[in-house]
């Protein structure tokens, strides 16, 4: 669908472009735009973070972003323009990691589409975050399993607990 824009952007080549996202989802039919912007922060779980590297399995990630777009469209049941872009490579503190923008006729639809899309990107897309710390150490984040048996086991295990990421 041409009302969906999905992208993986290598940080060395360009930064994610919020203005372009807002422009893309704007439409005379739409009175509501919701955005989520994820930025690299300088700490995690008590450790000082100096940067992040993102690794992606790009063909599957792009395919999944499109599938998420279709799911959001079905879910909100209203006209929708959606932008999903994720950064790849080495990011510094303050760099944009992910931009999701949703344009719809009304705010409720925009908020719902945006929320659905960012949660799905975080929990389902083949993307991996490696944090670099001030002491020179690095670590891959724990993350969500995409293996169905494992997901089910972890879902039961985490029942009643807040999702930490």
């Amino acid at each position: 669908m041409d009302e969906l824009h999905v992208a993986v952007v290598e940080r060395r080549v360009a930064a994610l472009d919020v203005a372009a996202a807002l422009d893309f989802v704007g439409d005379p039919r739409f009175g509501g735009i919701a955005t989520f912007i994820g930025r690299v922060r300088d700490h995690n779980v008590g450790r000082v973070v100096t940067g992040i590297s993102y690794d992606l399995f790009e063909p599957l990630a792009l395919r999944l972003f499109r599938a998420i777009g279709e799911r959001a469209r079905a879910e909100v049941g209203a006209p929708l323009k959606l932008w999903i872009a994720h950064a790849k490579g080495d990011l510094a503190i303050g760099d944009l990691a992910v931009v999701v923008a949703a344009g719809t006729p009304h705010r409720d639809e925009a908020f719902r589409a945006c929320r659905l899309a960012i949660e799905a990107v975080k929990h389902e897309a083949p993307i991996w975050k490696q944090e670099h710390y001030v002491d020179g150490d690095s670590a891959w984040s724990e993350g969500c399993s995409l293996c169905e048996e494992q997901r089910e086991a972890e879902r039961l295990d985490h029942a009643g607990h807040a999702h930490g990421h």
Binding site: V121, K122, I127, W128, G143, S145, L146, C147, H165
Partner: peptide, 23 residues
């Protein structure tokens, strides 16, 4: 994604995906 019960496809490069942490 190819779940556990699926047959390994022949002649296709696969990827192994650790738990994901995008965003």
């Amino acid at each position: 994604i190819l779940h556990n019960h699926r047959a390994v496809p022949e002649g296709v490069e696969l990827a192994v995906l650790p738990p994901v942490s995008g965003g």
